[in-house]
Every structure is written in structure tokens, then in C-alpha cells.
Amino acid sequence: MCLAIPHRIVAITDERTCRARAGTAEVLVRTDLLSSVQIGDSILVHAGFAIEKLQEEDGRELESLWEEIRALEATLSPEPVSDFTDISPGMSDGSERMNHA
């Protein structure tokens, strides 16, 4: 529900404000909700406030989950699983399904 965009801090303005970049845009961001920030931090910003520092994801955990899913799928479908083009229905199919949602 809440739009939040990653930014990178380029300057600390005062004890509760920093300048941060999202893409090519530079904006003032409030840092009240974080205990400490420094230049170079990657932050997640919602409605002008940093709500969390972003950290490197632990790729191994996701990768192992991925392996698990892959292994599970292999036990389910002996034939190669369908790809996007096969399961991508036409416009009317897609819209029909949206109607049910």
C-alpha cells in the first residue's frame, strides 16, 4: 500500500534531514525514523521519510529457496514446465481473470 523508493544519501543536512538521490532526482529526506545515517547509505523512502536502511540481501538464502522450488517442481511435472508464452493468455483471457479478482 505504501509507495517507497530506494534513495542514496549524498549529504547530511541537519540532525533530521539529508539530501538523497533516487535515480537522477535529488530530494530532501527526513531521517527521524532511523537511529543513524551517513553519506552513501542506501535508504528506503516513503512520503519524504526514510523508513529503513537497505542492506545487501543474503543471496544464498534466496538461492537455496529457489533450489528448493526447482527441486519440488521437478518432482511434479515430468515434462518441461511451460514457459511464459504458453501460459500467457490473450487479452480477453487476462481481462476476464482480472474481473474475477
Binding site: 500500500m1 505504501c2 543471496g59 538461492e63 526447482r70 517442481e73 511434479l76 514446465v81
Partner: peptide, 26 residues
């Protein structure tokens, strides 16, 4: 994000299943 090396959903949907996203941005 691991690279997408197999299609999503593959054979995992074996019966009618209902999921809900609880977030407007989703």
C-alpha cells in the same frame, strides 16, 4: 534476486488456489 532460471508457477498449482495481495502498491 536470483536469476529466473525456471518459469514461475511451473507445476505448483495442482488445484484451484486463491491468493490475496494485501498491499495497494503490490
Amino acid at each position: 534476486m536470483p536469476e529466473r532460471t525456471v518459469p514461475f508457477f511451473g507445476g505448483l498449482v495442482s488445484r484451484p488456489t486463491t491468493l490475496m495481495e494485501v498491499c495497494g502498491t503490490h
